[in-house]
Simulated assay, not measured.
Amino acid sequence: MKAFDPYLAFNGNCREAMEFYQKAFGGELKIMTYGEAPGGNQSGDEKDLVMHSQLVKDGITLMASDGMGDNKVTFGSSVSVSLQCSSKEEADTFFKGLNDGAKITMPLQDTFWGAYFGMLTDKFGIHWLLNYDKPAAQ
């Protein structure tokens, strides 16, 4: 397997969400609307919905799109996006970046399993787990 990338779905606010994630994580963001797609014949607001977007940073890709028509998204608690951070500082930075309007489930903290870990649900309803596995004591 070459990659395993999360693909998020939104109800008309995909662009806002992906720009928010770009601000939180950095990286290069590409967005294509339904109206920009070859053969795109949507009218009104549908032409401005996101058909596909991707945020790429350090070889990691987060993709997303808007549902359209009868394909509305139902948010639930069955999936979370887990970020394996490379340092405690990176976990702090990402957590702070996602924190605007979020519901914090568990603040970042040292855990009994040897990680620095926290959980939140962002203002778009996406569940995030941030983890930094601390080096084992010598």
Rank of each mutant, 00 (worst) to 15 (best):
H52V: 03
T121S: 08
G35V: 03
K88G: 10
F25P: 11
D92Q: 10
G40I: 03
T93R: 15
L108A: 13
D5L: 15
Q22N: 08
A64S: 04
G40R: 01
A3F: 12
P135R: 01
K47Y: 13
K103I: 06
T93V: 13
R15W: 00
S87P: 00
G76E: 07
G67I: 02
S43N: 14
D100R: 01
G118P: 10
P6R: 02
G114Y: 03
K2I: 06
A102H: 03
N99G: 08
M51C: 03
Q109I: 14
P6V: 04
G40N: 04
S86N: 06
C14I: 01
M63N: 13
G39D: 00
A137W: 08
D48E: 09
T61L: 04
T74R: 10
E28F: 13
M68I: 08
S43T: 15
D92N: 12
T111Y: 09
N13M: 00
P6H: 03
I60T: 14
A37Q: 06
G69N: 05
V79R: 09
E19G: 07
T105D: 13
E36M: 08
M1I: 05
T105L: 14
A9I: 05
L55C: 03
F112M: 11
M1T: 05
D133N: 08
E16N: 06
T74S: 12
V79I: 13
G101P: 00
I60N: 14
G69D: 05
A17V: 07
D92C: 10
S86T: 06
A3E: 12
D100E: 04
A115R: 09
D100N: 01
Y116R: 07
Y21N: 02
W128Q: 08
F95T: 07
M106K: 13
I60A: 15
D133M: 08
I31G: 07
G39H: 00
S65A: 07
M18G: 01
C85S: 11
G26E: 15
W113S: 06
K96W: 15
N41E: 05
H127T: 12
Y132L: 13
L98D: 06
H127G: 11
D70N: 05
D122R: 02
I60H: 14
Q54H: 15
S87H: 00
F4K: 13
D66Y: 04
D122P: 02
Q109H: 14
E89I: 12
H127M: 12
E28V: 13
F112W: 10
K47T: 13
T33E: 01
A102E: 04
M63Q: 14
E90M: 07
Q22F: 05
P135H: 00
T33D: 02
E46T: 12
Q138W: 10
V56I: 13
T121A: 07
I126G: 11
E89K: 14
L49G: 12
Q54R: 15
D45P: 10
K134E: 05
G40Y: 03
F112K: 09
C85M: 12
Y34E: 11
G97Q: 04
N99E: 11
G59D: 06
S65R: 05
K47L: 14
A91E: 06
Q22G: 09
Q22W: 05
V50F: 00
G44M: 07
